[in-house]
């Protein structure tokens, strides 16, 4: 039997409501450490809602209520007393549209470490900026113009800048919500290669609408439909021979 990595994140009977509307129904999903888990499913199926539970991004929506459990390393994160800021330090996020701060490339990266009290001296910050940009495979392209605005980079570079920004605070988990949907194929390929490299250090969860991308980057895939986790398993199994008819209909393009 093939060895699986240890479980990093565990959701148990997770339910999410936006006002009266229930968005997630009893989701039980284990995410393995230093692996990429892809979440697929039609728009509005709850996959983004699910990942937003992992860093409590849903807290900022007033009408949103979450019940059930999410554990990271066995520790419940839905605890009201939990320090959300330090949670988000451990769980970084990259969004669909690259969203660099309207600041220089350098400041985009150094901002997070500064507010989390990391890198007190200039040389420490320099080191964090360089390492983060190197890990995000962007250093060579920007090292001579760190003081230029981040928004001046190309779309693909901006997305890698956002990944570097997420990495800069040394997180354990990176959540990616359709990180390539606004990028061209080459920029997409670069991000995918980067994801492959990053999984050696981080636990990654990626929401994607591209089946091919899910197959390329992930080891585990979960299929959501109407707020329910329909099937989860090894990516190869899901795309070659899924157990559930609904999964099969979705990935073969027979859905709805």
């Amino acid at each position: 039997m093939e060895l699986m990595n240890e479980i990093k994140i565990k959701s148990k009977n997770l339910n999410v409501y936006y006002g009266e509307k229930q968005a997630l129904f009893d989701v039980n999903l284990d995410l393995n450490e230093k692996e990429v888990t892809a979440l697929i499913g039609p728009s509005g199926c709850g996959k983004s809602t699910f990942i937003r539970c992992i860093n409590r991004m849903n807290d900022v929506i007033d009408i949103c209520k979450v019940s059930g459990n999410i554990e990271i390393d066995g520790v419940e994160i839905n605890d009201k007393n939990l320090d959300v800021v330090s949670l988000r330090e451990r769980v970084g996020m990259v969004f669909q549209k690259p969203n660099p701060f309207p600041k220089s490339i350098y400041d985009n990266i150094s901002y997070g470490p500064k507010i989390h009290g990391k890198g007190e001296t200039k040389s420490e910050l320099d080191e964090i900026v360089e390492n983060s940009l190197k890990k995000a495979a962007l250093w060579e392209e920007v090292k001579d113009r760190l003081d230029e605005p981040g928004t001046g980079l190309s779309g693909g570079q901006q997305q890698r800048l956002c990944i570097a920004r997420a990495i800069s605070v040394n997180p354990e988990v990176i959540l990616m919500d359709e990180p390539c949907s606004a990028l061209d194929p080459i920029a997409t390929a670069k991000i995918e290669e980067l994801i492959d490299e990053l999984k050696k250090t981080y636990t990654i969860v990626i929401v994607t609408h591209s089946m091919a991308q899910a197959v390329r980057v992930s080891q585990k895939t979960g299929f959501f439909h109407l707020g329910k986790l329909i099937e989860v398993g090894k990516t190869e199994k899901i795309f070659k021979n899924p157990d559930n008819k609904m999964t099969q209909d979705y990935i073969t393009g027979r859905f709805g």
Partner: peptide, 9 residues
């Protein structure tokens, strides 16, 4: 089409 699952098989 990059066929998947039953279509791939």
């Amino acid at each position: 089409r990059a066929p998947m699952a039953i279509d791939l098989r």
